[in-house]
Design a protein around this nucleic acid. Structure first.
Lengths: 137, 137
DNA sequence: ATATTTGCAAAGCCTTTGCAGGGGA
DNA sequence: TCCCCTGCAAAGGCTTTGCAAATAT
C-alpha cells in the first residue's frame, strides 16, 4: 500500500508544502522512498540513489530520511529481528507481517486484522499497529 | 505481568533445565531479569548487577541476555522510538502500550486488546503483538 | 549576500568478538 | 585435566555530528 508514483514536480510541491527545500538529493531520495520503495532501510535507499543519482552521501540520506519522518511523510519502524531502522511510506493505520525465514515484511491492511481495544480511558491511544510473525507460503 | 520472584535455587534449576550452566553472574542477572525487571535494556541490567553483584562485565550481561533469549526465557523487543534492545520476561502473548512522553512501556493483556485475523491461509501466524502508542494519564 | 545544504571524516552509541586468565565439572 | 565462562579491550555496525565547500533563495 503506497502512494502512487509522483512526478518530480509533484515531489517538489510536496516538499515545499512541508517547508522542506526541494534539493536535487532530496527529490531523488523521495522518488524512491515515497514511491517504489518497500520498507527500505538506509542502505537500500543509499544503494538506489547511487544508481540513479550522480552523487549523494550517506549522511545526506540519513538527514533526508530524518526530515521526512519529522514532517510525517514516512514512519520509522523497528522490529526485534534487526537493529536497523526501516522506513514505511504508508503512514495510515495498518499492520505488518514478517516472514521468519526471509525477514520480508508484508503490509497488512486494517481490514485483514481487526483490533478491538477495551483499555481504560487513562490510555489515550493515538496510534497502534499489529506485528505478526510467521511463515508466508 | 511477571514471573513471581524466584529463589536462587529455583533459578539454578531453571537454567539447568535449559542446559545453561548456572554461574554466579547468570544467576544474578536472572534474579533481576526474570523477576523484578520491567522491560529493561542492557544498561539497566548492568546497573542493577553493579549494585547487587561483586563484579560483572558488560560483555557477560550481553552474553547472558542473548542466552536467555535463545532458550526462550525472555524475548527481545524493539520499538521505533529507540534503537536499544529491550527485554521482556513475559513470553506469552500480550501487547504493549508506550507513553509518548515518558517512553514508559505498559504490558497490555490479551483480554484488554483483542486481535482478530482474517488473513488468508498462506500467512501462517506464529506470534503477534499489538503496539499502542499514546498518552497515559 | 545570506542562509541552507552537502559531503567527508570523525565521533558516538550499541553490540559482538578475540583472547588470556580463571573457575567449575 | 579439560572445557566453559568471564572480563577486558578492540572491533564492528548503525547513526549522528562538525565543519568547510558548494548550493539555493
Amino acid at each position: 500500500m503506497k502512494n502512487s508514483c509522483l512526478t518530480t514536480k509533484e515531489i517538489e510541491n510536496v516538499l515545499k508544502s512541508k517547508g522542506i527545500q526541494p534539493t536535487a538529493q532530496r527529490i531523488a531520495v523521495c522518488k524512491y522512498v515515497l514511491c517504489d520503495a518497500d520498507h527500505p532501510n538506509v542502505d537500500e535507499v543509499k544503494a538506489w540513489a547511487d544508481e540513479n543519482f550522480p552523487k549523494i552521501s550517506l549522511a545526506t540520506v540519513y538527514n533526508t530520511m530524518n526530515i521526512l519522518v519529522e514532517v510525517g511523510l514516512i514512519k520509522t519502524l523497528r522490529f526485534p529481528h534487526s537493529d536497523k531502522a526501516i522506513f514505511d511510506n504508508n503512514t495510515s493505520i495498518h499492520h505488518h507481517f514478517i516472514d521468519e525465514k526471509t525477514s520480508k515484511i508484508y503490509d497488512i491492511s486494517s481490514d485483514e486484522v481487526e483490533v478491538k481495544s477495551k483499555l481504560s480511558n487513562d490510555f489515550e491511544v493515538k496510534e497502534y499497529s499489529v506485528l505478526l510473525v510467521g511463515n508466508k507460503v
